[in-house]
Design a protein around this nucleic acid. Sequence first.
DNA 1: TAGTATATGTCATGTTAGCTAACATGTCAA
DNA 2: TTGACATGTTAGCTAACATGACATATACTA
Lengths: 127, 127
Amino acid sequence: MEKEWRRSMPLLSMNIVMQLTGLTARQIRYYEEHELVQPARTEGKQRMFSLDDIDTLLEIKDMLATGVNIAGIKQIFEMKNNPALKNDAKQVITDAQLRAIVKEEMQIAQRHQRASLRQGDLSRFFR
Amino acid sequence: MEKEWRRSMPLLSMNIVMQLTGLTARQIRYYEEHELVQPARTEGKQRMFSLDDIDTLLEIKDMLATGVNIAGIKQIFEMKNNPALKNDAKQVITDAQLRAIVKEEMQIAQRHQRASLRQGDLSRFFR
DNA sequence: TAGTATATGTCATGTTAGCTAACATGTCAA
DNA sequence: TTGACATGTTAGCTAACATGACATATACTA
């Protein structure tokens, strides 16, 4: 499609991007340093931004204003590019562990002797 | 399904959750304060955690260790619950704006007079 | 009923993320 | 070649985040 290359075409200089986004050059470099944007470069190493880059920068600006930090933004960007990551961390407790815990809980509740299992450091069962 | 209610059944006390997660009570309350977990309560206002809550807490622990802050975690949790949000912020620049910018750029490049449009604060066109 | 665990609130604190300022050097259009 | 603009780097500020620590009150448990 035609719009596509337009959006990804690097044609904007640092100067104009600053005005478009309201960000300082230092801020923009900072975000690049943290791999949130990857503007193209001219022969002489000067940055050339695409319109997609502008979108990204405005997103960053928004999220930072919301209180999300760089690390968080990075995570979110990764999730957007790879929606599979959405489900990774869930189900941290396996069904076997689940059964064990429930069983223990039941036994403990039954004999009203709440000190046994809880004394030990259960966190070793996870991670 | 049977596993479902088990996982969402609130049956764990603060004490045991601390051991399961390795988090302090203060930390857990802090996360609840910021609406990252919503444990059930007993009559006497004491927290009762489900196994899903444990999962959530372990996720929080992981992400914090990665450097993501509370605000970021909140965002990510919201994205997981509502994948539609994934696409919200993109396409910040409308096609009309896009065309305008490209046109200006072309004209400017053409007459090699790079001062005109760039003088003004273009950021007013956005947000 | 005593004793332990939890709730809630407030005050305090270390760490560090995000940023600004400033410099010396390098690029680029006219 | 000249002057505006960009570059990478260093140093340092500041505000806020995530916890700790404490005090008091209420809830469980034996």
